[in-house]
Amino acid sequence: MISILSRKPRSSAVIPKHSANSTAPLPEPLNQAPAESLGTRPIPTAAPIIALNRVCKNYANNTPALIDINLAMVKGDFLFITGPSGAGKSTLLKMLYGEEKPTTGSIHINGQNIGQLKGDRLAMLRRRIGVVYQDYKLIPLRTVAENVAFVLHAQGYSRKEINRRLPITLKMVGLQDKADRFPSQLSGGEQQRASIARAVVGTPPLLLADEPTGNLDGDNAQQVIKILRRLNDMGITVVVTTHDEAMVQQLTYPVVQIRSHRLYNFR
């Protein structure tokens, strides 16, 4: 039996069977419903944009990082992945954009088995995935505008198209007046917003954010979440990892938790 976690009827996060039957205590309840009761909701018929099937990941020293992960999301979903530091949230996210390969099991993104892709085929799939990093990964010697436009250059967009997309994207994250600043001249929140702009300027249908608020104060974190929600309202599927449970509590989006290397239905 599978359980479905959803904020909207179209939204689904499919949690592994073991989570429903697990005897291990679940985290402190956050409107937590038994997984079985959630299972009565209809399984969405739309093709999943993310589908993980019995994914296991071992570290190089063969210790397990993730065990038997099953997850499915359809277009337009918003999902929080929580868990303590070192639980494997970033590893899970890295597997979603092909930076890490699963040891066993399969990961399908947009119908393509990302674990089997490499070289230019992986590059082509990555063009459909925006990634926001906790450490921003902005290029220090390029301005905000150059950092954002860099993605479009790398993906082969024309100069005209770059000039069209750039101001719209910078305006969306509120950095239109700081386009010519270098990353070192920006605050942490601004750098993270620049990182989001870079992730979405190519209009990917899927956005993965790895601890996007991890280094930010409350106000900046709120701003970042607001942008992510707005992007989700535009139809982008968003996956956010965080260890900030207080922030997750304030929102009504589905939440899953990684604990003891396994994925549990949290809300």
């Binding site: 230019d120 590059a123 990555r126 063009r127 459909r128 290029i139 993605v151 993906q155 190519g202």
Partner: peptide, 11 residues
């Protein structure tokens, strides 16, 4: 960053 945003190897 180029690799992560989907730049091809030749690029």
């Amino acid at each position: 960053v180029m690799q992560l945003v989907g730049a091809t190897r030749s690029w």
